[in-house]
């Protein structure tokens, strides 16, 4: 019985005893990872149950945040501003990071002379490795004041757009967080795009130039070939942006209001959890509400990744590379 279960896991094809040991030795790593993810999901569901039982779906759609000590019945937590803020800032980040990361990848892989290429490559890796608190403090001290000027100008001249309708009162806004997140996630997206670009066979590069394409036209053709990787890179950037906590909470202004205007302060689920978790224990339901928020961005992350994978599948099938 034990033997047959083992056989099923390892596969009956692994006939050699040495091979079987080798495979068995490596199974635990994958297994532990799977367990970790499943337990994460289980913990988030378990901890968010009390608030969902109390407020129902309105914990996700309400914008009221009322923390009352010693009176659990009067507590009310609405996550809508945080959920919308997370999506809003991440989408802004990806929209800005998309052209930046493609341009960065193309510059490094195709346009820069080899010496500059090395420098740029190291700088990009360094950007990816920089701790997020560094970005946050830089954003606080430099980017936010800069953005204050930019957003005030945008409000004055384009204030009729809902995006810039609110007059900024400081540099700590949704837009500032989006810009900071775009800078932080660009190196990640660029790394994925660069990798794919460098793997384009030389014969296809030659083909592009041999039909008389200019540099710009050739790059456009080659980028078309790696469109799935660009999508994958941007999905990664989105995941990083939606999960970022410290840096965002330093520049977003932490205001629990719903607004369409990116010139207003806001909040994200991640920054809300980071800023509130410490004192959540004084309240009956707040911890549960924060877990519910975590569950939402966990699910959003899964959805974005699933969409990216689905897109790539369809692409591979369209190209005749699909695995049936």
């Amino acid at each position: 019985m034990a033997e047959s279960l083992l056989e099923r896991i390892v596969g009956s094809r692994v006939r050699s005893r040495d091979d079987r040991r080798f495979v068995l030795l490596h199974l635990p790593a994958a297994f532990i990872l799977l367990l970790a993810i499943l337990s994460m999901l289980a913990v988030f569901i378990a901890y968010s149950t009390p608030i969902i039982e109390k407020e129902g779906y309105r914990v996700f759609t309400s914008s009221l945040w009322r923390a009352v000590e010693g009176a659990p019945a009067r507590e009310w937590y609405g996550l809508a501003p945080a959920i919308l803020g997370s999506i809003y800032t991440s989408v802004i980040a990806v929209i800005i990071a998309a052209p930046l990361s493609v341009a960065l990848a193309v510059t490094i892989e195709e346009l820069a002379p080899s010496r500059l290429r090395g420098v740029l490559s190291v700088l990009t890796d360094l950007m990816a490795a920089t701790p997020t608190i560094i970005y946050g403090v830089w954003g606080l001290a430099y980017l936010a004041p800069l953005m204050y000027g930019v957003l005030s100008w945008l409000h004055t001249h384009l204030g009729w757009l809902p995006l810039f309708r609110e007059e900024p009162t400081s540099g700590y806004t949704i837009a500032t967080a989006g810009v900071l997140l775009s800078i932080m996630s660009t190196p990640y997206a660029a790394a994925v795009i660069r990798e794919a670009y460098s793997l384009i066979p030389a014969s296809l590069r030659e083909a592009a130039y041999a039909i008389g394409a200019t540099r710009f036209e050739a790059v456009r053709i080659l980028l078309g070939m790696i469109r799935p990787s660009i999508i994958a890179g941007l999905a990664l950037a989105f995941a990083r942006a939606i999960g970022e906590t410290v840096a965002v909470s330093l520049v977003i202004g932490n205001s629990l209001t719903i607004t369409a205007s990116i010139t207003s302060p806001g909040v994200t689920v991640s920054s809300l959890i980071a800023s509130q978790f410490g004192n959540a224990e004084f309240y009956h339901y707040m911890t549960s509400a924060l877990f519910a928020g975590g569950l939402v961005i966990f699910l959003i992350g899964v959805a974005v990744n699933a969409a990216a994978i689905l897109y790539m599948r369809r692409w591979e099938e369209a190209m005749g590379l699909g695995r049936a």
Partner: peptide, 19 residues
């Protein structure tokens, strides 16, 4: 670019653009 239109080329590897 104009030269490469007037002098076209076919390579050893078949290399249509896959996308």
């Amino acid at each position: 670019y104009e030269l490469r239109r007037r002098v076209a080329m076919v390579f050893q590897e078949p290399n249509p653009f896959p996308h």
